[in-house]
């Protein structure tokens, strides 16, 4: 059922983020990335382009990697969200983080949260990927520090099950 929302009128949304339930009033035009950073205070999700190319704002919505800058907050109503802050409770996430550090897969760290989130989803769907598949997954992300070499190695190591 479609309900007309007046300009500046707020809508109530309910979402579970990193296992914690939130109920918030938001304007329908508010981007989900801004909602996470400004309304929920989870500043680990970064905004790099706001047109869906750089991938820095990637989060998991019901387990799927999505670009939070290409979504409105109201679209997250009733969903389960995982952000980089929640990876501490995610086994694949913890392994990836250890591998990223080992392979110097991050420098400034700004793109890293989004890359970690996409990698978690990718490895959940595809536990034994080829190197080329890893590169193709990463091609949805811009990193201007590392030249990607360390990131590819880190994801590859996590698939091989070599990490702690």
């Amino acid at each position: 059922m479609i309900k007309k929302v007046e300009s500046k009128e707020k809508m109530k949304i309910q979402t579970v983020i990193n296992g914690k339930s939130y109920e918030k009033e938001v304007e329908p035009r508010k981007l989900f990335s801004d909602f996470l950073r400004e309304d929920v205070g989870l500043t680990g999700t970064h905004v790099g382009c706001e047109h869906g190319v750089c991938g820095a704002c990637t989060v998991l919505m019901d387990g799927k990697a999505v670009r939070s800058c290409l979504m409105f907050a109201v679209q997250a109503d009733g969903t389960k969200i995982e952000t980089v802050e929640g990876l501490v409770n995610n086994k694949t996430g913890r392994s990836l983080k250890a591998a990223f550090s080992e392979h110097h897969a991050l420098q400034c760290g700004f793109c890293t949260p989004g890359i970690l989130m996409s990698s978690v989803e990718f490895l959940n769907e595809n536990p034994q990927p080829e190197k080329q598949e890893i590169k193709e997954m990463l091609s949805g992300h811009l990193c201007r520090c590392t030249g990607y070499t360390g990131i590819v190695e880190a994801v590859q190591q996590t698939t091989d099950g070599n990490s702690k």
Partner: peptide, 14 residues
Amino acid sequence: DARLMSGEGSYVDD
């Protein structure tokens, strides 16, 4: 690395 991979970096917009 640890802070940057935990969402605990402090960038200016944060």
